[in-house]
Design a protein around this nucleic acid. Sequence first.
DNA 1: GAGCACTGC
Length: 708
Amino acid sequence: MPSMASNNSSTHTAKSEFYARRQEIEKHRKALPIAAAEKRLLEEVRNNDILIIVGETGSGKTTQLPQYLFNGGFCRSGGIIGITQPRRVAAVTVAKRVAEECGVPLGQKVGYAIRFDDLTSNSTRIKYMTDGLLLREALLDPYLSKYSVIIVDEAHERTVHTDVLLGLLKTVQKTRSLGARDIVNSDNKKDENGTLLEKDNGIQNTSILKHCQSTKLSPLKLIIMSASLDAQGFSDYFGGARAVHVQGRQFPVDILYTNQPETDYVDAALITIFQIHLEESPGDILVFLTGQEEIESIERLVQDRLPKLPESKRKLLVVPIFASLPSEKQMKVFMLAPVGFRKVILATNIAETSVTIPGIKYVIDPGMVKVRTYDASTGIEPLIIVKTSKAQALQRSGRAGREGPGKCYRLYPENEFEKLKDSTTAEIKRCNLSNVVLQLKALGIDDIVGFDFIEKPDRMAVIKSMELLFLLGALTEESKLSDPVGHQMSRLPLDPIYSKALIVASQFNCLEEMLIVVAMLSVESIFYAPREKLDESRTALKSFSSTDGDHLTLLNVYRASEEFLEKSKQVNSKEKAEKNLRKWCKENFINSRSLKHARDIHSQIRRNVEQMGLQITSCGDDMLPFRRCLAASFFLSAALKQPDGTYRALSSGLTVQIHPSSVLFRMKPECIIFDELVRTNQNYIRNVSRIDYLWLAELAPQFFALQE
DNA sequence: GAGCACTGC
């Protein structure tokens, strides 16, 4: 029978395809530089409780080492090998790859867990995750008792999460190796897994330092993986831990410098683009710029000059990429240029690590980068343009050597390179620490200044964040985590100010509303206003806007989107309804990626507050309690109108102005609270709402009594 | 009447 025959042959084809694929995977794995070191690495991990692995790009360390350890018996007693990544996409894509290499469905032996997306099961033994997620897990299981091995990958990036995790893991490892020998009494109850049970209020009050009772816990193996050559810093931090080096696989990249310093790097970049285009062999160009404005201006300049070239030389395709660009436009960098065309990608830092673009042969690096800094005295976090570090320059040039030999044009003289800092300032040195402090306190680490960080944050920044947490009621006068407010706040994956707002809202009977507003405030800008459609977007915004301010406007947007989605779901499939929602967003000039993010956060924090036992009630149509609640929650950023129409921020004394994007920009009420202060040409406040001045003294007397 | 790099729970 023909059908039988075809069935058989297709089964046969499928089978042979399967085996061909397996063979291909095996061949690929054996060819990786790290493969030759499998036995040696296993020995090193057996002999050392802490191991530093320096692996260059393309060594295969992230995908292979966990498999070696699994096969080497490191999960034998049920332990899990956890691998942390600074970024979500990395955790997901690597896990998928490793599951395929192991020939198992994702979520079984190999899985991943990131916020909003957990693809692990009881049988998961190799678990990829974000470092921030593992920190959250530590709040529930301070010994990280599920894990037999923890691998911290990309440690050289030194994100805040990585730094806190390193300090925590150091303590956990010490505790677990002690716990395996000694029995120490504890007043906490334990379940059969050795996990500490939560106390009655749903909040666990344990200290990994004080309660060492881990008789069932086995020692923890710790592996720190870094791509930078600076293993010494990690080794010193871990008491002279052993460091091994694994060869990478990169093609050579020619580094070219300018003879003289450039006064205008944007102009220099433009000239270099055309120089490469006219003189060099085929291959795409990647240009590193500092921000959207620079990217858009170079894009225009290239377009302006192209028509002046001979017809045969006009085949240059310009593609911008930066984080706030809608995803469908971002995808353009992955599309092949038409035949005969050269692609030039104008990118921010997003192309340094987050996005890998194929086909790049030339990199142009002006040597500048925009970074967020933190000013502890004002609490403002301005963005400034600074020179890159050496490590960053190397990372950028490496982007030209992924598929073949390449060239990197550094738009500064060689002696300037020598003057650059070795590596970028760790994030912990330049960020607001209130969340870090809150997390550490929740882990039972009370002495923040004395905590064993790989690099100490500034003392002033620690003190400032403790002051803030005290004013929010999260810390007691003795700087201990308060009960229940501090404990509750530490459980919420939010900025501490927002966490507090949720707790306050439960007392004002408007938690329903505050959950939405806090979710909306937590995401990147909800409104999307392209320059060419400014008027249309303004009209769209009007239909949602509230005279009470931006917070209620955000609430209106969220509710309108919910209503639209619910209606759409009644007549459509879930997929179709979500597609319709994206269309609705576009029509209303709303960034659908941001709204989706807000919806995810909303459902997560709603679950969180339910678990805490907070009452989720709504204030209905009466917005007065909600506005009073805003005053009670955001009193630290209240501002009063001055005779000249500017505002004075009450806690900092700074003169500020309402940002033109606010619905209150023209209305200028007497007294307001705001969400964010950004410094550009002026001090602008964003997301502003009208309140009554008298509410401040009534609802935050502890603070406004001090003012007088 | 402005303009914001990139992550993450």
